[in-house]
Simulated scan of single mutants.
Amino acid sequence: MTTREYLGSGWDCDAVLVDGVWVERTARRPDVEPWLRTETTLLPWLAPQLPLPVPAPVVVGTDPLVTRHRYLPGRPVPDAAPGLGATIGAFLRALHAVDLDEAVARGLPGPDRTLAMRDASWARFDDEVLPLLGSPERTWLAGRLDVLRDAPATVVVHGDLSADHVLADGDGITGVIDWGDARAGDPAKDLLWPLHGAGAAVARAAQEAYGSTPELRRRAAAWRDVAPCYAVTHGLDTGDDDLVRGTLHALRLPGT
């Protein structure tokens, strides 16, 4: 008998574990389905080029669209996991070195699309998020947005790398999941969490393994600061007032 265990839901997909072996993902909205299909061509090509396992999904249903990949064991990695910084730094170095044109040919959103999406997001942040803040926070956030207005889109990025999307067990890191935001992008966006969210020891090791520059670190810090804007606009789109209020509270001047 087939067993099905609910794993959770994100903004885009619902996930269930089938027979303890397969992860099935179903799009929560029609506009997510094209990306689920893209994952089935992009990730199997990408996986052999990376030093950590990633999902390699296939389509198993079409109405609605359902994809399936082998379950990657582990739980969200703790920030104090041994070797985390060096492992993630090496993983990102390999990811950012893959052939961007080949990835775009397999469905990855290319630089033009990424920059157009960023321009649209920044316009919304200017029009809908900044007016919700007090004057000091508004001035500070506007400056952080300006740092990234002309950021490059020159490498394949995961786009949403965090402790929630890196899995680990007692033997170390077991995989990197949730590639729904992968695209041509700014390498600094993938460095946000390891350099500015996982602690000083992880940041030092990741920086050494990756070889980050001061400019990359500056932009990574700016990505950290503007990230809550995405949650605010998502809350506005979905009518989630609690998400909007809670996220606005996070958009405070450093040290306040």
Rank of each mutant, 00 (worst) to 15 (best):
R4Q: 08
R4T: 11
E5L: 06
L7P: 03
G8D: 03
C13G: 01
D14I: 01
L17H: 02
E24F: 01
R28F: 03
R28W: 08
R29V: 01
P30G: 09
D31I: 06
V32Q: 10
E33V: 13
E33P: 14
P34H: 09
W35Q: 14
W35K: 08
R37I: 11
T38I: 15
T40K: 10
L42I: 09
W45P: 04
L46S: 03
P48K: 09
Q49I: 05
L50W: 11
P51H: 11
P55I: 09
P57V: 08
P57Y: 02
V58L: 03
V59D: 11
V59Q: 13
V60S: 08
D63Y: 13
P64I: 04
L65M: 11
R68C: 05
R70Q: 13
R70F: 05
P73W: 06
R75M: 04
P76G: 07
V77Q: 07
D79H: 14
A80R: 13
A81T: 01
F91L: 11
A94Q: 14
A97I: 02
E102D: 14
A103D: 05
A103E: 04
G110L: 09
D112R: 15
R113E: 15
L115M: 13
R118I: 02
R118P: 07
A120Y: 01
A120H: 10
A123V: 09
D127P: 01
E128G: 12
E128M: 05
V129E: 10
V129K: 11
P131F: 03
L132G: 02
S135I: 09
E137S: 07
R138N: 06
T139K: 09
R144G: 01
L145Y: 07
V147R: 09
L148S: 05
P152V: 10
A153N: 03
T154C: 14
V155L: 07
V156M: 12
H158D: 05
V166S: 12
V166I: 15
V166F: 12
A168M: 06
G175V: 06
D178E: 07
A182C: 13
R183A: 15
A184R: 03
P187W: 10
P187C: 06
D190Q: 04
D190Y: 05
L191E: 02
W193N: 06
H196T: 13
A198Q: 13
A198F: 12
A201S: 15
A203N: 12
R204V: 11
A206W: 07
A206T: 10
Y210N: 08
T213I: 04
R218S: 08
R218Y: 02
A221S: 09
V226Q: 00
C229K: 00
A231G: 02
H234S: 04
D237R: 14
G239C: 09
D242C: 00
R245E: 06
R245G: 00
R252S: 10
P254T: 08
P254N: 04
T256F: 08
